[in-house]
Simulated scan of single mutants.
Amino acid sequence: MTIRHDGLRVRWLGYATARVDDGETVVYIDPGRYGVLTGDWGPPAGIDTRHPAGPAYDARDGDVVLVTHDHHYDPDGIRRVAAPDATLVVYEGVDAERAGRPPSPETLAAEEGYDLVRIGERARVEAAGVPVRSLPAYNDPDGPRANPDGSVTHPEGFGVGYRFVVDDVSILWPGDTDVLPFHDGLDVSLFLANISGSVCMNREEAAGLADRLDPDLVLPIHYDTQAFLQADSAAFAADVAGRGVPVVLDEGWA
């Protein structure tokens, strides 16, 4: 379904994919993977998923497409959402060969006619009139998602999050990350909260961050697509609402 917020329309399309538009400019974050845009997605065994499943999605209307890291890089997903003259903003650390999903962002942009901006870990760019700021996104090697040897799924330098602005509304997609100290100082109107826990902040940590950010609205995404992403979104919403922060769930195509 479509969530309306301060002149914006927002849809969670599955996994880490969200669409934001103000009637003139369309921005997508991390499109594709796991069949969420091809119509092939099915509930993984063992979880009572609330993840939206729907038909194949092939809008090709995105003015800006933001990609945070290897795990969320999907050339087919990008093709399905990007307009012919789209600007791709892709973290400089994304490596298509390492991810196992060719072609590279450079080859994809050349083949399809997109503009490509490779962005650093702490950088600011303007893409199709949209101000974009990148933020480090990683798991703390001393934190709750570290293995006994200190290794983590998302080491520092592997990916980023994004704070971007559409029609004067600031949106935060932190990417696959733990809650980090610099998150608290961000000015955010819409917080796209990552609540899946096993590889990033869990719902309790995300609710605490929402409390400190005090955004105008919280919309959780990136949960339940795979069994390891299981999260109780209803409990998250109740927690956030109990802290006096507006929250909404987008869990269907109707």
Rank of each mutant, 00 (worst) to 15 (best):
S189R: 15
A234W: 12
V247I: 11
D21W: 06
P43K: 11
L217K: 02
A86P: 01
L229W: 10
L190N: 01
H71Y: 08
H222D: 14
T38Y: 07
G208N: 12
A83T: 03
P102L: 03
T2C: 01
S170F: 01
I221W: 01
A193L: 10
L66N: 11
G244C: 06
A109V: 03
G175Y: 05
L249F: 06
L219W: 06
I78M: 08
L213T: 10
G244V: 08
E121M: 10
S104W: 04
A241P: 05
G46V: 09
G14Q: 09
L229D: 14
G62R: 07
Y57P: 00
T17L: 07
P55T: 12
A234Q: 09
T38A: 05
W173E: 14
G23R: 02
A16R: 15
P215I: 08
H183I: 07
T87K: 02
D250N: 13
E106S: 13
S151A: 13
A82I: 09
P52C: 09
Y57T: 11
E251F: 03
Y114M: 02
V218Q: 09
E251G: 03
L186P: 01
Y91Q: 05
R124P: 00
M201W: 00
Q226S: 11
V166S: 03
R98L: 13
A86W: 00
P31I: 10
Y91C: 06
W12S: 05
E204N: 05
L180G: 08
A45F: 12
P105W: 08
G35V: 12
G161A: 13
D115H: 13
T87S: 10
A207Y: 02
S134E: 05
A254I: 05
A110I: 01
D63H: 15
